[in-house]
Each structure stands twice: as C-alpha cells, then as structure tokens.
Design a protein around this nucleic acid. Structure first.
Length: 284
DNA sequence: CGACACTCCTGATGGC
DNA sequence: TGCCATCAGGAGTGTC
C-alpha cells in the first residue's frame, strides 16, 4: 500500500521526467477513477497544460498544471504510476501522454496509472486557495517536515482517548502514516498500539516522534515497501518490506527480545506488536 | 468525541 | 480440480 514513503518515492523519480513537459493526451479507461467528476471535463481541464511541478502532501501526489490547475492523485491500496510501461501492462485505469518525443522515436512518453482494486482516485482543484482548502480539510501535519516536533505531537495527543494506533492512522492529525508505518513506528517507540493517545508521557511522545520519523525515513531510503503491487515508475520494487521489524511478522520472534510477534486487530487494521517490548496497557 | 459498520474492489487464501 | 466464502484495507459516510 502506498503510504508517504512510497508516494514520495514516486514523486522523486517522476518529477525530473515530467516537470516542464506538456500533457498532450489523456485517456481515462475507468471513469470511476474521477467520480463524480465527468472524465471529459477533467481531460479538458488538463490536456494542453504544462506540468509545472510534481508535489506531494500526505499520500496525495499533486500535479501542478499551468495556471494553477491541480490534479490530485490518491493511490489508495494498490495504485502505481508507471512511466513508459510495456504495452500489455494490466489494470491500466488512466493513460497520459507527454509532449517530449524520445530521440528518434515518434510518440511522446506515456504514463499509466495502474490500480488492480480500483480504489485510487483523481480529483481537480482550480487555483491554489482551492487546493489548500481541499488539503487542509483532510490532512494534518507533515511528519517529515520541520514542525513535527515532540512538543507538537504532545499537544496533538492531549485529551485523545482513542488508541495511539487509531490516532496515527487519522490523516487529519498526521498526514501520510498508514498501517505499515504505524506498526513500525510504534514498535520503534516501544509503545503498545492500544494505549490511549492522551495517556502517553512526554518521554514516550518523544520516542514516538522519533519512531514515526525513523520508520518513514527508513522506508524512504529503501525506496518504499513493495508488499502489494507497489512499483517505482520504472517498474522496480521497493526494498523496505525486507526491513520490517514487526509488520507482517505475526508468529515470528521479535528481533530485540525473541518473544513471538502478536497479530491482532486495532483500529480495524491488522496490527503487529511485540508485547514484551511494547507493554500492553494493564486495563486491556 | 469515538467506536463501529458499511461501501468501494479484486487477488489471494482456505475449506470441502 | 473447481467452486464458493472470506479476507484485506484507505478513506468517506452514516449511526449510535
């Protein structure tokens, strides 16, 4: 599942290939992708515009077109963006053609949004204020930004009765953390996923901040995690799935203490924890 | 505020 | 081997 590190990996690799190019053609194979927007209207709004910048906020990949027309792509569970993929690539939902013909070739480069489960979405925003309204309504602080401090996280968690796992998954509080990185961050911080967020002490909050930043950074350095369909734009897999400390390791020994990693459901998601390293709250 | 159910979707998995 | 039921899960929405 693409979370912040996966989307940022895509952005970094794609940006040099698309920035400054003009969108020449666009085909929306699956109109559900931009529902309730009319695919024709979306195409009309974008085709002919230069891509000024490829950006990211939380798990959104943001294409800034000429004159502040923004395309917001969310990859959800199984979305990928492939650059010049093989012609028989399956699950293509959207196809984009850029105006830069390869040297000697005829056609421009092609970008495909592929998404087996079809959860991914495309939305438009006209003008920067509209973009900011859209993002501010959905997303909280950027965890890899300069303002994501221990003090800030402490303030955010005060009074919250929800389990810290649910808190981390709420995009309106912290933007970009999904199930994998929440599991990894909580293990790094030695905090049990079911502990109420507001109950955490300053020291634990400091460890959690470092755990979130550490897990996301490690994911980014590994080029993201490819456990489902995630691929880089050139089709290469990420490597972070080989570095998971707890995620997906139910029944296997904890790398720190050797106790069996437990799997249970928290916040409706598959949750993995070492209940020796991450002490379970007494009341639970 | 928060827990929970439901929706979208399809590949993977398990039972028989 | 085939067929059906179940599951996973990000985010939005609705209910209690």
């Amino acid at each position: 599942m693409p979370e912040l590190p996966e989307v940022e990996t895509i952005r970094r690799r794609l940006a040099p290939l698309v920035e400054g190019r003009t969108l020449r053609e666009m085909e929306i194979v699956d109109p559900r992708w931009c529902d309730p927007l009319d695919p024709v209207a979306l195409i009309d709004a974008l085709v002919g515009r230069r891509v000024e910048r490829l950006d990211r906020r939380g798990k959104y990949l943001i294409w800034e077109g000429q004159d502040e027309v923004f395309l917001l792509m969310h990859l959800r569970m199984t979305g990928t963006v492939l650059y010049d993929p093989a012609p028989d690539t399956p699950y293509v939902r959207v196809r984009l053609t850029l105006d830069d013909p390869p040297s000697g070739g005829q056609a421009g480069h092609t970008l495909c949004f592929c998404d087996p489960r079809r959860f991914g979405t495309g939305e438009l925003a006209f003008g920067r204020p509209a973009l900011d309204d859209f993002l501010d309504a959905r997303l909280g602080i950027e965890p890899l930004g300069p303002h994501f401090t221990s003090d800030h996280l402490f303030t955010l968690t005060r009074g919250r009765l929800a389990p810290i796992k649910a808190f981390l998954l709420d995009q309106r509080r912290i933007a970009g953390v999904g199930n994998i990185y929440a599991n990894e961050a909580l293990f790094r911080a030695q905090i049990h996923p079911l502990r109420p967020a507001g109950q955490l002490k300053r020291k634990q909050i400091a460890a959690l901040r470092d755990g979130v930043v550490g897990a996301l950074s490690a994911g980014l350095n590994a080029g993201g995690a490819s456990i489902d369909d995630f691929r880089h734009p050139d089709g290469v897999r990420g490597a972070f799935q080989n570095e998971f400390l707890v995620h997906g390791r139910g029944g296997e020994p904890c790398f720190v203490c050797g106790r069996e990693i437990r799997r249970f459901v928290a916040a409706g998601r598959g949750t993995y924890a070492c209940e020796r390293c991450q002490v379970r709250p007494r009341v639970l």
